[in-house]
Design a protein around this nucleic acid. Sequence first.
DNA 1: GTGAAGGTTCCAATCTTTTCGAACCAACCG
DNA 2: CGGTTGGTTCGAAAAGATTGGAACCTTCAC
Lengths: 112, 112
Amino acid sequence: MSPLFKYYRTMATYELEHPEIADVTLTDVLFALSDPARLEIVREVAAGPLDMAACGATNPDLPKSTKSHLMKVLREAGIVRNVPNGRGRLVSLRKDELDARFPGLLDSVLGA
Amino acid sequence: MSPLFKYYRTMATYELEHPEIADVTLTDVLFALSDPARLEIVREVAAGPLDMAACGATNPDLPKSTKSHLMKVLREAGIVRNVPNGRGRLVSLRKDELDARFPGLLDSVLGA
DNA sequence: GTGAAGGTTCCAATCTTTTCGAACCAACCG
DNA sequence: CGGTTGGTTCGAAAAGATTGGAACCTTCAC
């Protein structure tokens, strides 16, 4: 086992875990969307997949650990997908899946 | 001034404050709905106005101070209206107002 | 190589929510 | 009047969320 093992799961290039859409709960989704900073990220990503480095344009000097945490909450709630992409990560909205699971929810939140 | 003054604003028969619908924020609404116990109350009330004593049927032995607090969060978020009614209080969903302010939101949450 | 950019985890401090007993009052019933 | 029911506030304890620095790793550019 490599001496780097400890970091295998933390490297930006490795896969992070995403919940199955069937396991996503309504209350977790609502909670994740109930924070202004997280909701803002969702709005940005709703326009199309975005490099993580690029999103958060409205919050330019958000510390990276904070941004990483906000993203984790969105990912664990099942709202975004976050995949390795070169040196960084690409974030996308799980729109089709969410629309199937909670019809109309995302549109009404984003439309508000 | 009456010695009872201290309690004028807390008596079950007096009016509680409700936010104007225009002042209700999306994130406060989402947050209030993100708790399972609160969401359950909203589902019960969605069928029609309910005596506070009657709602919470699913949580029969919830302490009253806890129930009062859950209700307060819902009221302050602008989701329910809570008016004096005889010895108790009547709770109702602010459905029309919420539908106008956040079209489709309530239906998608309740439909989920 | 070396260096910078991008991103994660760990940890600790702080702040916010949650929970529930206690004290209290009004309304109703006998 | 005296007891019960319904419901609020206050206060304190416990649990959870947020924030940001530090340490660390990779990939890319030079």
